[in-house]
Structure formats: structure tokens, C-alpha cells
């Protein structure tokens, strides 16, 4: 019986299910954002209370742990042409500061 179903029908069904699943995921994203408001507020409070400046994303080097606090040339601290030797240095761009001292 299945072989009687037209291929275009199967394709339409596949695309429609994909779109419906995408819509469900969009709703999941919306709901997760609402559910995580308390966590976000708690993290923001911790940032305020402890006066934190950076996210804890990379702990391997001090300039990737606190990129906003690092000297501009930290990745090249060994000598001016030294390439960064920490893998996360290739993911983190240097901060863009526009004023004052380096």
C-alpha cells in the first residue's frame, strides 16, 4: 500500500514535518528564554556583587580568562612576533579599545 503513495506527497509530508519541528523548536527557544530569566538575573547579580568583568569561557591563559582586562599585546608577550600558543587564542579576537593608554 505504501508504494501507492505518491513521492511528492511523501516529500511534502517530510518538509511539513520539518517546518513543524522547527516551529516547535522556536517555541522551545522562547519558553527556555522565559524559564532562564531567574538564572540570568542571578548571574547578573553575581557579576554586580563581585564586580566581575568577564565570562568564564577559557581558563587556560590569563588573557583568555579575562580578555577585557588583558593588555592589548598579551598574546605576543614573549616577543613581538611570537604567535599565540594557546588554542583558545585563535578563537578570541583582541579587544577593541579606542582611547587612552594601551
Amino acid at each position: 500500500m505504501i508504494s501507492d503513495v505518491r513521492k511528492s506527497t511523501v516529500f511534502s509530508f517530510f518538509i511539513l514535518s520539518g517546518l513543524m519541528l522547527s516551529a516547535v523548536l522556536m517555541l522551545h527557544a522562547r519558553q527556555s528564554r522565559i524559564n532562564s530569566e531567574a538564572t540570568l538575573a542571578a548571574n547578573a547579580k553575581m557579576v554586580k556583587d563581585l564586580r566581575l568583568t568577564d565570562l568564564c569561557l577559557f581558563t587556560e591563559a590569563r588573557y583568555t580568562r579575562h580578555p577585557s582586562m588583558a593588555d592589548l599585546h598579551s598574546p605576543f608577550q614573549d616577543h613581538p612576533l611570537a604567535l599565540d600558543h594557546f588554542p583558545s587564542g585563535s578563537l578570541v579576537s583582541p579587544p577593541r579599545f579606542h582611547h587612552g593608554a594601551p
Partner: peptide, 20 residues
């Protein structure tokens, strides 16, 4: 170091134009 610079740092972290 201004707060706007801290926020901008995280805007440029994982910038599609840079790094890996």
C-alpha cells in the same frame, strides 16, 4: 577600561571575521 569596552570585547569574541 569602560563597561562599553567590556561588552564590546564579548561582541568581538567569536567574531566571524577573526580567528578559527
Amino acid at each position: 577600561i569602560l563597561k562599553s569596552e567590556i561588552l564590546r570585547t564579548y561582541d568581538s569574541v567569536f567574531d566571524w571575521r577573526g580567528g578559527m
